[in-house]
Amino acid sequence: MEDKKLNSQESLELITSMINKTKRKIHIGQGNLLLWWGYVSAIVGLLVGVSLYITGGNPACNWLWFLICIVGGIGMMVIIRKDIGRIEKEPKTYVDRLTSNLWLTNGSAFAFGTLLSIGFNFFGKNTWIVMFILAFILSGFSANMQGCIIQEKSMKIGGGFTLFAGIFVLCCVIADVPLAVEWVIPLFVLCFVVTMIIPGHILNAKAKKQC
């Protein structure tokens, strides 16, 4: 392309062609972060469930939940670092900014909830359940919103399901309905499968098809 003058028809064609070229496309690996968090959460959920079952409900098993933050956080940094070249090279759109801020808010709210729970427990008040409920509500809401933004039906449905499951668990806690390991852990795992694992695979498959 050179610095030549154009007629009005050529100008319009050029604008259209540049807009088409820069249209946001799904890229390979877009679903990787979702898959990572989804698998880590589901596997840790299963691990906690099995540990509680084997130990007859020893509350110390709940410390295993922290594996989601530790393993998930470290893995996320590795994935982002590996992908940084492509991320920086590609143009940033309004949609990119919106989705990254959405998940940043989600992560910050969860971290804040965790810190508050630690603080309350320090003073002998058991508030660990807050983290459990936040995991449902925050991830469900964020996934549903991202699904609406990027127009991905599986994320909208999966996120909505998890959000409603979170509200249901919250009602159970308020109504003093015991959260039995037999149903609450499978529900937790199912939620992360439908919110992150299935949409993550769908996004990656769509990206592969597009390339």
Partner: peptide, 13 residues
Amino acid sequence: SILMNCEEASFVY
């Protein structure tokens, strides 16, 4: 035209 369609783009892009 490129920059109108995205918030930020690199020189390389």
